[in-house]
Nucleic acid binder design. Structure first.
Length: 309
DNA sequence: AATCGGGACAACCGCTGTCAT
DNA sequence: TATGACAGCGGTTGTCCCGAT
């Protein structure tokens, strides 16, 4: 691993400093670029003395000429005592693969399941190692499906308009059509890294209204990469995301059935990752609970299951 | 030895969610 | 209820390293 501190101040670009905002409101002149050992020391000392938080005022308190955001990032990704440096172990790699398949590009969520690893580190590792590794194995890193199948399906869809909506659903793209024929079941966006919808949990301003009368931004969708997720809402404000059968074609699914259940308040990163509780609910069949351990149990059950390998 | 190009990683940017007022 | 500040997330960019030529 490179040590950014060792080469930090060598570049003129690193010497940019700021004292005001420019015409577009951006802070200019604050020091940017790699951190020096001195800066690390100041930041660590300040946090050790005064604790984390209040990032906006921290730079001043610490005697740093950085924005608070930069300080937070440096602390979280590099200086925090719990951060584990060094090579990703094979078992960690395996875990990342499994979790990515389940969660898509939810890096913070994935990182939360791997002690000592940060979202940034995992994201980088994925982009530089794992995605290429999967491609070399003929697997689409976005969908975790065989590349050939993805290509063929997409090609077929362009020739057959009727297939298009199905493929759109399979690829995780929004589809206005209701392929199920039921007014209660709609196709959904997926949380995959397909590029069409990089963060499905952030529909806040989309404002589109789904068939069941709920705004799209109230939805949580099925886990990444499986497509064909069907969304269903009941009258009590619970939303179900079915994942079944569809994977039989490539032998991945093996006929299992997963329901993700969502309360009207939705499922957010906070619910899942940081607080572990909140209003989010996930039901794996047989699990009827909505407390802190639900997601943990859910993920544990799935990532320990060989069907995701 | 010099140069070039790709890989790897740290850091930045823009956006969203939450909370206090 | 509206608004602004703050914190956090994921995508992208910038920079350094290192091997190939």
């Amino acid at each position: 691993m490179r040590n950014p501190s060792s080469s930090a101040s060598s570049s003129p670009a690193n010497e940019k400093k700021k004292s005001s905002r420019n015409s577009s409101g951006k802070m200019v002149g604050l020091k940017r670029g790699p951190w020096t050992a001195e800066e690390d020391e100041l930041l660590t000392k300040c946090i050790n003395q005064q604790g984390e938080g209040k990032w906006r005022t921290l730079p001043k308190r610490a005697g740093l000429v950085r924005c608070g955001k930069s300080c937070r990032l440096r602390w979280m990704n590099y200086l925090h005592p719990s951060v584990k440096r060094g090579q990703i172990a094979p078992d960690e790699e395996d875990l990342i693969l499994r979790l990515h398949r389940l969660l898509g590009n939810r890096w913070s969520l994935i990182a939360g399941r791997i002690p000592g690893r940060t979202d940034n580190e995992i994201k980088n590792y994925w982009n530089t190692h794992l995605s290429k590794k999967l491609i070399s194995q003929g697997i689409d890193p976005k969908t975790h499906k065989p590349l050939l199948e993805t290509t063929c399906t997409a090609a077929a869809a362009t020739k057959n308009p009727k297939l298009k909506s199905v493929v759109a659903a399979k690829d995780g793209k929004n589809s206005d059509s209701d392929i199920s024929g039921s007014s209660k079941i709609v196709t959904t966006t997926t949380p995959t890294s397909s590029g069409q919808n990089p963060n499905p949990y952030r529909h806040r301003h989309s404002g589109s209204v789904m068939d069941d009368g709920l705004e799209e931004d109230q939805m949580v969708v099925g886990h990444g990469g499986y497509g064909n997720n069907a969304h269903e809402a009941d009258g009590a404000g619970h939303h179900y995301f079915h994942q079944s059968d569809l994977d039989l074609e490539d032998g991945v699914g093996g006929g299992y059935h997963v329901n993700l259940q969502l309360s009207p308040q939705g499922l957010s990163n906070e619910d899942v990752h940081h607080h572990g509780g909140g209003d989010g609910m996930i039901n794996c069949e047989g699990m009827v609970e909505e407390d802190d351990g639900v997601l943990t149990s859910f993920l544990d059950s799935l990532i320990n299951d060989d069907m995701f390998v």
